[in-house]
Amino acid sequence: AEKTGIVNVSSSLNVREGASTSSKVIGSLSGNTKVTIVGEEGAFYKIEYKGSHGYVAKEYIKDIKDE
């Protein structure tokens, strides 16, 4: 049951290796980017990222929809 969301930041949002603010940053997404959410862990969504997965803070994702 995948969902999509939109990155809701003015600059960019860090994509992390794990569901923690201390996890390594593996990339970033600019505002209004559409993401595919494959799961959630605590305050983070697990998303599809560059052929693999990454984690982003839930508070910066809006317009969550079921695909």
Results as ranks from 00 to 15, higher is better:
19 A>W: 07
62 K>Y: 08
29 L>A: 02
8 N>F: 09
48 E>D: 07
2 E>D: 11
3 K>M: 08
48 E>N: 08
16 R>P: 00
61 I>T: 02
58 K>T: 05
8 N>Q: 15
1 A>H: 12
17 E>D: 12
8 N>D: 14
6 I>Y: 13
7 V>A: 04
42 G>T: 04
16 R>M: 12
19 A>T: 08
30 S>R: 10
54 G>Y: 03
8 N>Y: 09
52 S>H: 14
37 I>N: 00
38 V>Q: 08
49 Y>C: 03
67 E>T: 13
18 G>V: 13
39 G>H: 04
10 S>P: 12
21 T>E: 13
26 I>L: 15
58 K>P: 01
66 D>L: 13
34 K>H: 08
31 G>A: 12
43 A>D: 11
56 V>M: 03
39 G>M: 04
35 V>E: 00
47 I>P: 00
10 S>R: 04
31 G>P: 08
16 R>L: 14
23 S>P: 01
56 V>H: 00
50 K>H: 15
34 K>V: 10
61 I>F: 03
13 L>N: 02
39 G>A: 07
28 S>E: 15
41 E>K: 12
32 N>G: 08
48 E>M: 15
16 R>W: 13
39 G>I: 03
50 K>M: 06
54 G>D: 00
22 S>W: 07
35 V>C: 04
33 T>M: 09
9 V>K: 10
40 E>A: 10
38 V>N: 05
37 I>K: 01
31 G>Y: 10
23 S>L: 03
63 D>K: 07
43 A>Y: 08
50 K>C: 07
24 K>Q: 12
33 T>N: 08
52 S>Y: 10
2 E>R: 14
4 T>P: 06
7 V>C: 03
60 Y>A: 07
14 N>E: 13
21 T>S: 03
35 V>S: 00
62 K>I: 07
7 V>L: 06
36 T>H: 14
33 T>R: 07
37 I>G: 00
25 V>N: 04
53 H>G: 07
20 S>A: 15
61 I>V: 11
9 V>I: 10
7 V>G: 03
14 N>F: 08
27 G>C: 03
46 K>S: 03
47 I>L: 02
8 N>R: 06
59 E>T: 13
13 L>P: 04
13 L>T: 12
49 Y>P: 00
15 V>A: 01
53 H>D: 07
30 S>Y: 07
51 G>Q: 09
15 V>T: 01
21 T>L: 08
60 Y>N: 08
52 S>D: 06
16 R>G: 04
6 I>R: 05
51 G>T: 10
64 I>L: 06
27 G>M: 06
1 A>C: 06
44 F>S: 04
18 G>M: 15
58 K>R: 13
51 G>N: 15
65 K>G: 11
33 T>I: 15
4 T>L: 08
42 G>K: 06
48 E>Q: 09
25 V>A: 06
44 F>V: 03
28 S>V: 12
49 Y>H: 08
61 I>Y: 01
49 Y>R: 01
42 G>S: 07
52 S>C: 05
21 T>I: 05
55 Y>N: 00
29 L>H: 02
13 L>H: 02
64 I>W: 15
54 G>F: 03
9 V>D: 07
2 E>M: 12
40 E>Y: 07
29 L>C: 04
19 A>L: 05
1 A>R: 04
60 Y>P: 02
26 I>F: 03
27 G>Q: 02
50 K>F: 10
3 K>R: 13
19 A>I: 06
50 K>R: 10
61 I>S: 01
62 K>W: 08
64 I>G: 12
2 E>I: 15
29 L>S: 01
13 L>W: 02
38 V>F: 07
43 A>V: 07
22 S>F: 12
43 A>S: 10
18 G>C: 06
5 G>F: 06
4 T>W: 11
5 G>C: 03
29 L>I: 06
3 K>L: 12
63 D>S: 09
16 R>N: 07
8 N>G: 12
28 S>W: 15
44 F>M: 06
44 F>W: 11
9 V>S: 05
9 V>E: 11
2 E>C: 06
67 E>Q: 12
8 N>L: 13
21 T>Q: 10
50 K>P: 03
24 K>D: 10
67 E>P: 14
11 S>V: 13
66 D>P: 14
6 I>G: 03
18 G>F: 11
57 A>Y: 12
39 G>L: 05
58 K>F: 03
24 K>H: 14
35 V>T: 02
15 V>G: 00
48 E>Y: 11
18 G>T: 13
33 T>Y: 15
21 T>R: 08
42 G>H: 08
2 E>P: 12
2 E>G: 14
66 D>H: 11
35 V>L: 04
52 S>R: 10
46 K>W: 06
29 L>D: 00
41 E>F: 15
24 K>E: 07
46 K>Q: 10
48 E>G: 05
58 K>V: 05
13 L>Q: 03
